[in-house]
Simulated assay, not measured.
Amino acid sequence: MRVAIMECPEGLVADSHAWDVIARAIHEAEPDVLVTDEMPFGMWLARTDAFDPVRAAASVAAHEAGLEALRRLNVPVVLSSRPVNASGSGQLVNEAFALVQGSYRFAHHKHYFPAEPGWHETSWFAPGKPGFDVVDAGAFGVGFLLCTELFFNEWARHYGRRGACLIAAPRATGESIDAWLTAGSMAAIVSGCFVASSNRVGRVLSGPTFGGGGFAFAPDGTLIASTSANEPVIAFDMDPACSVEQQKRYPCYVPEIADRGHC
């Protein structure tokens, strides 16, 4: 099956000209699976360090409209995230989800948040439901590592040992991507999964500059696809059987330590 990754402009609005350009590129790639960037619609909220309920509501609404735009792509599986209102906390939750034949499947709530200029996510978001569960996407299992979570390799390994063959890593990251490439490769190596990541691109007014640079790694950690300004959408072939075989090999087969207190 073909998996598409992409880089999307900051402030993307569903059914705008910019969206039409991206949608055409996605159709031309003819993917079976699309991995978007992190919370792809609307303005980047975490550019400021004070929670604003008006801006939060606008972002939720932008992603509600975006959800319908994603459905209209008619891609069999879409893997993405969106802000939703958190119960009782007064903050938002960053919710990963899968659209499988248009049907919404909850996947994961982001747990790890940066707190620095341009990425004041702790002011805006809180963890909601606990857990890093494998989601049934039809012909394969998928796990999510949302942006910063990609640096926590224990969860990549966790997904691989629970039968995922793809780790989706939607991002909203800056201009330097070297560390992210390393993290993506390591996530593939320790899990035996394909790893696919998409990112935003462009500058936020009084905020960060997003660097684009979507990437995909094979289960052995080899880079197999990357986006660019000239190719903002690119697709690669994913065979779940390759992941199953890689998970039998080193280092994936190495057993976990039952009692870490004796390390």
Rank of each mutant, 00 (worst) to 15 (best):
S59P: 00
T36F: 01
G261H: 11
V84A: 07
F194R: 01
E7V: 11
Q247R: 14
V190T: 02
D49I: 00
L146V: 14
V60N: 03
E149M: 09
G90D: 00
V60A: 03
V21Y: 00
D239Q: 11
D220H: 01
C242A: 14
S123E: 12
W155M: 13
R260Q: 11
P170H: 07
G128C: 06
C252Q: 15
F106Q: 10
L34C: 04
V190R: 01
V204H: 03
H108T: 07
T182E: 14
Y112K: 12
A23T: 00
C165S: 15
G261Q: 12
S206W: 07
V233K: 08
A188M: 00
H262F: 10
P251F: 04
E256H: 10
V93I: 15
F140P: 08
A62P: 10
S89C: 09
G163P: 08
L34Y: 10
T173P: 01
E10F: 06
S89P: 07
H63W: 03
L150I: 13
M6A: 13
A56M: 05
F194Y: 15
G160V: 05
R200L: 15
P232N: 10
A65G: 04
G184I: 06
A65R: 15
F125D: 05
F140C: 11
K110S: 12
S206M: 13
I257Q: 12
W19C: 09
L166T: 02
A61G: 01
Q247K: 14
I26G: 07
D237P: 03
W124F: 02
E116Y: 14
G42T: 07
H120R: 05
V142A: 11
V21S: 00
A107T: 14
S198T: 04
G141V: 10
D37G: 13
A96G: 15
V254C: 07
Y104W: 15
F236I: 05
S226M: 10
V75G: 06
P219W: 09
G202I: 06
H63L: 07
P114Q: 11
R171I: 03
A235L: 03
L150R: 02
E64R: 14
H63A: 02
L34S: 09
W19S: 05
L67H: 05
S80D: 04
V254L: 14
S89H: 08
D220Q: 04
G192M: 03
C252M: 14
P219D: 04
Y159K: 02
A4F: 09
I22T: 13
G207W: 01
V93F: 03
F140L: 15
C263H: 11
L12K: 07
